[in-house]
């Protein structure tokens, strides 16, 4: 049997789905063998039918011979009818199996897609768990800031970030990585994208609204809150070169940071060294 271009693709081998997939593969194999054997049977019958057809010009013969030939003809016609019936039956069976195979392939694809979707979801949840674990596992304010940096670098994919604390009506950088802290030294609440995020408490994502020239490298601005109050702002600048853009999973991490990182910083505020800026 020639290789079927619609042949089922491999489902990722996994502990739970692997068994089912292997079963499906076995069924597929058995069906293929059955189809192949039916095909060869059909070919055999077709050959039998061809060889049983009467020759075009029979030679003249005696009366008793005619009787014998008639009898033989009848036998052959009956055999031919049987053969045709068998062929029809085999064709119907083959069609049934073809449809069944298509069903199995579709099921195979569905299981594969479902598995992959579960896998992706599971990765997203893992990201959230890791972020939560790191933030709340930090014992001092510096450790929270370090954890925040690691989360942003390794889970979001950027090496340019800043955390700015709300101090009255101003914002001051308490941690920067990969960016010059100077332009961030003194931002008024409500000024620019960072100041606006601090004032409104609304997550800013690049591409939504027109960026001001000084904010054009900003990819996201996450308000880090304590309840409804914005405690600090996490500014994320350019993403890593191989990261094309933010994903839904990144948004989920931002939401988590928004509601947990602020609390963690607030709770450990007394552990801050007097001059922690920069």
């Amino acid at each position: 049997m020639p290789s079927d271009p619609r042949s089922p693709r491999l489902v990722p081998d996994l502990a739970s789905g692997g068994e089912k997939h292997r079963e499906l593969q076995k069924v597929n194999e058995r069906l293929r063998e059955l189809v192949a054997s039916l095909k060869s049977e059909q070919e055999r019958l077709a050959e039998a039918r061809a060889s049983s057809l009467p020759t075009p010009t029979p030679p003249p013969m005696a009366g008793s011979e005619h009787g014998a030939i008639d009898l033989e003809k009848k036998r052959l016609v009956a055999e031919l009818a049987l053969a045709r019936e068998a062929i029809d039956h085999a064709s119907a069976e083959r069609e049934r199996l073809r449809l069944r195979l298509a069903d199995i392939e579709a099921e195979n694809r569905r299981i594969c897609d479902e598995y992959v979707a579960v896998e992706e979801k599971s990765s997203e949840l893992a990201q959230l768990f890791v972020a939560l674990d790191r933030i709340h596992g930090a014992l001092t304010r510096d450790e929270v800031l370090g954890a925040l940096q690691e989360i942003v670098i390794n889970l979001i994919g950027t090496e340019e970030l800043a955390v700015l604390e709300v101090q009255g009506d101003r914002l001051a950088p308490i941690h920067t990585f990969g960016v010059d802290p100077e332009p961030l030294r003194d931002i008024a609440l409500g000024a620019g994208t960072i100041g606006r995020t601090a004032a409104t408490g609304v997550l800013h994502l690049a591409g939504r609204g027109e960026p001001t020239p000084e904010d054009r490298d900003l990819t996201a601005c996450v308000p880090l809150k304590v309840g409804d109050r914005v405690y600090a702002v996490l500014a994320i600048f350019r993403l890593l070169g191989h990261k094309p853009g933010l994903t839904e999973a990144d948004h989920a991490v931002f939401e988590l940071l928004s509601s947990h990182a602020g609390i963690a910083l607030h709770l450990r505020a007394q552990t801050a060294r007097p001059a922690a800026a920069g």
Binding site: R9, C112, D113, V116, A117, E120, P244, T247, E248
Partner: peptide, 10 residues
């Protein structure tokens, strides 16, 4: 990877 998933068509 060979096959895309519904939620990630990258």
């Amino acid at each position: 990877l060979p096959y895309h998933v519904e939620r990630d068509r990258s």
